[in-house]
Design a protein around this nucleic acid. Structure first.
Lengths: 145, 145
DNA sequence: CTCGATGCAAAGTATTTGCACCTAT
DNA sequence: ATAGGTGCAAATACTTTGCATCGAG
């Protein structure tokens, strides 16, 4: 699976930046995640695997991966960022459970089209969006009656 | 316009909390804003008006106003919160311009209904949502051709 | 060989908390 | 009276930055 590494290398080369071992290790770990994650979480997992990269380098690398289009930045109302890699994942939106904290994903084509229409009405050229619905998930509704 | 104060007092009383002068001053300033604002910004404006409330009290009061349903919390991708009061304002979503930082508001009934449908499909009981579309506004598109 | 990159620790930013004193109910 | 509230300053959480050294291209 060197496809991401190649993409990253190309992105870096284009702006005179270098693909260092550290950046490669971070990229590797990012794509090992199968869900949303936070910076500190990633660092912790790398340390568990005995992979050592400084916090500073991690914080310097994540934005690069976002700019390279390999990572997506999500804001979940907390005061730190969440990320998710883009490996063959289509865009999707989120349902956040206020009770158990679970994050469900969904995709709805009608929703996407509707947003295009709204933007057109405002003369707005969209580059992306975030839709986050807060509430209570199926399980938590059952649990509390 | 004591209607908000009454609502806040009722909210507080219900849980054995008190309506102090400081809380009243913060509430007053919140409804003096006609747009989104940040905690530090509000504090600054209060200081300009020679109204003195400690930072700690402000940070302790804002969440109360949110819980009381008088203030809405918005997350604009930055790492600090934005607020907007709810005085007779209907729910709306946002268009964020990446170039000039302008925030346009919009409301679309079809969008609201569509979200209800999506939630129903997932057995999810929504309490609210945030939809933020990022891109370039009409003016900035003109400016850059 | 030359910039860009790294690690460390110190500095920032936004927000929260402990504590001694104060006050709305 | 008394539980809750206040200001202050110290603490926290997350992220950024300065600097001396290192290493990819």
């Amino acid at each position: 699976m060197h496809e991401h590494e190649d993409a990253f290398r190309e992105f870096l080369a284009k702006r005179g930046l270098k693909l260092t071992p550290e950046r490669r290790l971070i990229l590797e770990e990012v794509f090992r995640q199968h869900d949303h994650f936070e910076a500190e979480e990633l660092l912790f997992r790398m340390r568990q695997r005995k992979v050592r990269v400084s916090k500073a380098t991690l914080y310097r690398t994540l934005p690069l991966l976002v700019k390279a289009g390999l990572l997506r930045e999500e804001v979940f109302g907390e005061r730190h960022l969440h990320y998710e890699h883009v490996h063959g994942r289509k865009h999707h939106d989120h349902l956040l459970c206020l009770s158990c904290g679970k994050i469900e994903e969904f995709f709805d084509e009608t929703m996407e089209q509707l947003q295009e229409q709204i933007c057109a009405r405002h003369g707005f050229a969209p580059t992306g969006h975030t839709l986050e619905i807060h509430g209570y998930c199926k399980d938590c509704r059952k649990r509390r009656g």
